[in-house]
């Protein structure tokens, strides 16, 4: 695969598109409870935060949130704000954990911390702004399910990263294109 100078932009856009696709896949999976989500669309973010520049990571994040909003039909509702807040905090936490943890932390820990942060923020928002104190009732379910899915996605990402030649290729192209643009 020849390396081109716009690879960086292309890869960012591709990861965003992957989020949109995974949102659609997730939409097909029936949910036993409405707030139980698998969080498949977090996968590109989890893979991306290992090698993307912060600017590109934020772009993928925005694409993910908008894509999810489009697929789920929640783009124009307050659910979108929940999703946005949860995702922003989650990505921020994941980057921090990944950078600070260094080689002591794997993608499982990164994914878990992101899921934890996201569900905590959403519960806090629900209690403070939308449903009042009674929203506490859902806190254990929301946080618990977030952790279970965070764990699943994390384990998958860890395995995927260690065995995918495709991802290595992408990472290489991205870093070369970064070098080029300097």
């Amino acid at each position: 695969m020849p390396v081109r100078s716009d690879d960086r932009r292309e890869i960012t856009a591709f990861l965003g598109a992957l989020c949109l696709f995974l949102s659609a896949v997730e939409y097909l999976i029936p949910k036993p409870l409405p707030f139980l989500r698998l969080g498949l669309a977090n996968l590109p973010l989890l893979l991306g935060l290992r090698f993307l520049k912060p600017v590109d990571l934020i772009l993928v994040l925005l694409l993910k949130v908008i894509g999810q909003g489009l697929v789920n039909g929640t783009l124009a509702s307050y659910v979108f704000l929940f999703s946005l807040a949860g995702s922003v905090v989650s990505v921020f936490t994941m980057s921090m954990v990944y950078r600070l943890g260094g080689r002591h932390v794997g993608l499982v820990g990164v994914s878990l911390s992101g899921a934890l942060a996201s569900s905590l923020v959403q519960v806090a928002l629900a209690v403070t702004f939308v449903f009042g104190e009674t929203a506490r009732v859902i806190a254990p379910f929301s946080i618990g399910s977030g952790i279970v899915t965070g764990l699943i996605i994390g384990v998958f990402a860890e395995r995927f990263v260690s065995s995918s030649g495709w991802l290595k290729g992408i990472e290489r192209r991205y870093s070369i294109s970064l070098e080029d643009s300097k």
């Binding site: 002591h104 932390v105 794997g106 499982v108 820990g109 878990l112 506490r136 254990p140 764990l151």
Partner: peptide
């Protein structure tokens, strides 16, 4: 894909948060 030390710590932390949220939820109202 071996789990590293912080993975375990974060996992334990998550369990602690869930447990705390159960108590928090039960004390509501």
């Amino acid at each position: 894909h071996r789990l590293r030390i912080l993975d375990y710590i974060i996992f334990l932390l998550s369990l602690a948060v869930v447990t705390a949220s159960v108590f928090w939820s039960a004390s509501s109202g």
